[in-house]
Design a protein around this nucleic acid. Sequence first.
DNA 1: ATTTTCAATACAAACGTTTGCAATTGAATG
DNA 2: CATTCAATTGCAAACGTTTGTATTGAAAAT
Lengths: 341, 341
Amino acid sequence: MRIIDIARIANVHVSTVSRSLNNSPLVSEETSARIKKIAEENGFEFNASARGLITSRVGTIAVILPHNFDQFPVTVFHSELHNYLRMILEREDYDLIVTFHKNRFTGVNNIIRLFKRKKIDGIILIHQVHDDETERFMKESNIPFIYAHYPPENININDDVVYVDHFHGGYIAAEAFVSRGILKLLCLKPDTGDTEYKLRLKGFEAYLKERNIPFGEKDIWTIPPTFEAGFNEIKRKKDEIDNYQGLFALTDFTAYGALQACRESGISVPNDLAVIGYDDIKFSQYISPALTTIHQPIDQIAKITCERLIELIRNKERGKKWETKRILIKPEIVFRKSLLL
Amino acid sequence: MRIIDIARIANVHVSTVSRSLNNSPLVSEETSARIKKIAEENGFEFNASARGLITSRVGTIAVILPHNFDQFPVTVFHSELHNYLRMILEREDYDLIVTFHKNRFTGVNNIIRLFKRKKIDGIILIHQVHDDETERFMKESNIPFIYAHYPPENININDDVVYVDHFHGGYIAAEAFVSRGILKLLCLKPDTGDTEYKLRLKGFEAYLKERNIPFGEKDIWTIPPTFEAGFNEIKRKKDEIDNYQGLFALTDFTAYGALQACRESGISVPNDLAVIGYDDIKFSQYISPALTTIHQPIDQIAKITCERLIELIRNKERGKKWETKRILIKPEIVFRKSLLL
DNA sequence: ATTTTCAATACAAACGTTTGCAATTGAATG
DNA sequence: CATTCAATTGCAAACGTTTGTATTGAAAAT
């Protein structure tokens, strides 16, 4: 069923059908109603190829993921984010293509390729695109795009971005400890140097400084962001642990490792050592003891990102110039067993 | 850059360029080489819309997921599967559109809609499509499709399917217990009635029967497939647990709950009670004690599914009739702490 | 009664490919 | 030297839309 078939049935020209189905005001009410009825009855759907050929609008949004596919906890986070994005864009009738920045086999830049081939309507970047080629391409081809989740420190000042306030996350973690009289604090920090981790730590330190609570370099242990690293570090430095009352793990997964090491070493959580994680991966509520942690509002990130991107796409369609926006989401702490409310 | 631009540079007709870039034998070696060089230099990509308009082949495969999006462990499994699928199809230069069977807001059947609009090349179904409308549509429109992961009992005998041998999974679980002299066995079975669970149980029972090991209705506890249900059931029937030496949880997540209940109830795993789960979700290696479980070879499922689907697509393109195939993958047991090797 | 205006509709070109068929080569055959 | 043939290449229609412009007919303005 094509619009020309509908045209024949309705006894009008194809262009009238096209206009009707696209809600153009250039068709009379009755004609349009008649056409829409016929289309409805026949389960008509536009041929996206034909349409895309002319309009370059194909009803598809691309999500670009970073390439650390096999780093387990990262994957969980991205999958969740992706699921939410899909749910939201479903409502708007957009399809979602998920891809990595570069094809690992051919080395081809997927963003550029996708856009050339399919005329993607918009792009959601879940990681920083560091290379100039891509950035230039996106700017030149005027594709609406938005960064999601990553802190804007890494991103061009003029790009749109929706991000979580990692500084604040660290800040409220410190607050949670201190307000409970837990003052001798230790931090497990990933060694990957990502900005988000740095910000979490800065927020943490900022609060402690405000309250004049001693916290220095020696209280920051830098390790890989893995279960194993968390486990080993706590086991290895078991003796030093006795000096601390609270542990802030900058990612949940390290916290799990630490928790296990504590159990095996006879350190009672939260009595001997209170623990706060960061991320609120779904498993954190099932681990034992259930982890108190800073919740990353994935659903919010997804929702706001989509809304903003769709706004950008609409702006572009109307040829409207737009301001870039940086939208900030405040994380919250969720209390469980590893640090009681 | 369009093929006509390349044609001008190469001083040939567009049709020659098209044929060259599509590896048609109707172009001489030198001409073709010249054309390909120019295309390469200019970073040429076909316009998928124009191409799709004619060929109905757009380089897109759709993955249809079930709608239990928010059931956590299910999501993890699907996300992993999806990730693998993406990796593999990336190599073949297919894009992946992920969608649910029906749009939850509009009620529109996404499979039918997608195919009408975009002329999807092939479909991977991660759940059973129960409704006749979809099934009829797929058959009539001759779309290559394949079921992945679900047991073929639910699926039309004439459809392609790649699935895991759940029966065998149950069988080797029983074998693992029995060969270690653990004979008084309990099974935690999900109450959802999915065929895969039934098969796992059947395999389990089959082995026990072979060995004349008593195992009856009272040894099967039927509960929701959740962490909480596993936890509560064990806590509630704590006294009865003393009669058992081994627990087979038909899904890892229930096993996690059971493990936690054991810890809180002073039941030592694996000494008092050995535990085997099913799925091998990534977390099973981090839970404490690490879970011995039946591994679902997600990577294999993904790989084989893709290979077969691509074969189906090729067959269709060549107008070849093909036999349907049912491909079976054997799961394996992975030993950790909850039942020692 | 004639012209102007306007809403509604029709016409036709364009989007970038693919592909059956025709035309052109140059060489091989009779 | 005329003919056949195969290998290349060119031509043009087709795919299903969108959209600027032209046409229509009737109402409004002169």
